[in-house]
Every structure is written in structure tokens, then in C-alpha cells.
Design a protein around this nucleic acid. Sequence first.
DNA 1: CAGATAGGTCAGCACCATTGACGTAATTTT
DNA 2: AAAATTACGTCAATGGTGCTGACCTATCTG
Lengths: 188, 188
Amino acid sequence: MVLTYLMEPPAVRDDPRPVGAAAVVRDPLPTQGLLDFRVIELLFFAYREFTGDADSILEKYGFGRAHHRVLHFVNRDPGLTIAELLDILQITKQSLSRVLRQLIDEDFICQIPGDEDRRQRRLYPTEKGRALAIELSRAQVRRIEAALAKTTDEDMRPIATFLTAMASDRQAARDWFERKDISWKDRE
Amino acid sequence: MVLTYLMEPPAVRDDPRPVGAAAVVRDPLPTQGLLDFRVIELLFFAYREFTGDADSILEKYGFGRAHHRVLHFVNRDPGLTIAELLDILQITKQSLSRVLRQLIDEDFICQIPGDEDRRQRRLYPTEKGRALAIELSRAQVRRIEAALAKTTDEDMRPIATFLTAMASDRQAARDWFERKDISWKDRE
DNA sequence: CAGATAGGTCAGCACCATTGACGTAATTTT
DNA sequence: AAAATTACGTCAATGGTGCTGACCTATCTG
């Protein structure tokens, strides 16, 4: 191996802009300078752990995250049409097809023609699919509840408000939140 | 196309468990039943919008999310070694290599042998890389700040506490948070 | 000098997403 | 009743991002 790009080590220690090379930046972007990076990085690390909980379970079944998402929404809203599911997931039907095919073939989900419109293939979980969906959500809820352990009902409001605002750009998301009552009405 | 799996439509409307077919589940998983799905779904939709902001910019450069992550952490912590970066990203060096190679070849990042240990290839952003990192973060900060528009300093605490708890499973994450002071000491 | 460490690379594979094109069945429109 | 539209399925090709395994160089350490 030749490592040509290293044979003449950039002389940046003496000259920050050697001829023909771009300037090297040595100062870090500070956590709270022009931009505040704290929430960016918290979201990155938090979401990775969040999905990791489910990923390790999915591996046992030979599934990936895409399977999880399909399974989740079919369980949350049985009778969903393909079009509705695509609208929620924001992927193409070609992307969905492979994943859905596997879930159907392995008997986690089944399709039933719509009553009114028989072109539709409405999606329902099987008992097997329901069980897996619950297993996956249980793992994620465990982490969430642990993270919220010391959170009061009062403190839950700003958290929910923040996440809802982050999430509510698309109509499909807003519709889902309203239909499924994803909000923090203080419950007592 | 034959659609064999549809030729004999499951008679589940009459019999929930026809011979040889799995039981079909028709009731939805309620938002707050045995499990509370609200935070799960808020995180899913929120993170998708959050990454989408950067994705559309990256597309212009022919880059993906992996490039973004590398660029981000190299900008946040210039002089990072490969090993340190791998520890933060939790990927293999083979996964990193393609992405890093492109960022180096296209002059967004450069490598400089370590002063003390010359085996190390310490990573620094170029001015071009710094500019892109800022452009990407600006888009994400814009969404975050909009979502936090009505949030008081007081309300910021529970949000930060929640995300930090969600994110802090791994030592590498905890170290990063401490080193970069990712926390909400009320500032005034 | 021997071994460990930091890093690079090749080959092959899996997963998940894309676009484009084409097909079928059912519903709606004319 | 014919035509157009809709709902869905599928084939083919491609790209991005991850993985494992194997093997390489350069450097540091004992």
C-alpha cells in the first residue's frame, strides 16, 4: 500500500495554508457559540440508544428497522391501507414491498381486501405480529420510562411540547397525532 | 401476477382463526394502554424531520448521513483520532473508511500525523468542511429553536434531563457530554 | 528484535432506500 | 359499455451505509 496522500505530510503546523492545499481548521466548534450543539447531539445519542433497544430484538427474527416500523404502525392501526402506510412512513411502495412481503410470508402481518373498496389490501397483525410489536415497544418504553423516572406530570408538558413541535411538519404526522391522541392532557 | 395469497381470501370476518391460518388481530394497540406509545412515536417523527433538514443539504453535495456524522464530530473536536471517532460513532473502521475517504478526497477533512504518536492520523476540518458543518447545523438548530420558541429556561431542564438520560447508556456518550459540557446549567 | 497498536484496504454481503417501467384488478367517469 | 383512474404488485438497476474476515504498512514499546 502506498498512502500517496501521506508521503508528503501537509506542512500545516508551520503554514496553515500551504500552496495547493485547503486551509486546516484547528479550533473546535464550541458547544454554545454561534450555534448551540447541545440538543443536536443529545438527539443523536438518544435516538441511537432508543433504536438500539429494538434492533437487538429484531436481529433474533432476522428483521431490520424497516420491518419494525411497518409492524408498529400496522399494530397501532389495524386495517391500514398500503397508501396510508406509505404516507406515514414516507417511503416508496417499492421500498415497502420487500419488507412487507417478508412480514406477510413469515405470518406477522396479513392482508384482507377492503370491504367497500376491494382494490385495497388492508393490513392487520397476526397474533404473532402483535406479540412481536409488544415485545419491541416494551423495550423502548422501558428506556423511556427510566429516563422519565423523576419527571413530574408538570415537567412532562415541555418535553411533549418540544417533541411535538419537532415532529409536526408534515400533515401526515399531525393527522396521526390528532387521530391517536398523542398529547399531554394532564391525566389524573 | 397471481397473488396466490389472496385467491382464497381469509374468512377472518366470520372466523377469527380459520384452519391453518394465524389469528388476525383487529383491535389497535391503544395509545396509553399497557404501554404508552406517545413518546415512541414523537421520537420517531421528530427525529425524521430533524435528520431531514440536513439530508436535503447533503444531497447537493452527494453525501449521506454518515458523512454528516463524521463531519460533525471532526468539526466539534478537531484533532480527533480515528479510534476516538470510531468510539463515538460506534461503527467499524471499514464502515468509516469509505465515507472518510470521500470527505478527504473532496477536501472537507484532512489528516495530519499525530505529534507524539505518528501512527495516528488526526482529523481536522478544512475551511470548506467547517463551512458545510455549520450550514448543516444551522438547519437543524433552526428547527430546534423553533420548537423551543416558547420554552422557558426553567422548562429546558426537564427536556435536557430526559434526553440526557435517554442518551447516556454508553461510556463514550457520557464522556463526550462531560468533555463538551452538554448540560443545562441555567445560564444568565 | 518481537510484539502490540493505529490505521488502511480489499472482497463480499446485508439492509434499506431510490427511480423507472410495467402489469392487474377494481372503481369511477364519461 | 368503454375509458380513465386508482390501489396495489413486481422487476430491474442503483446508491448509501452498515457488517465480517483477511491482510497490509507504519510506528511504538518492551
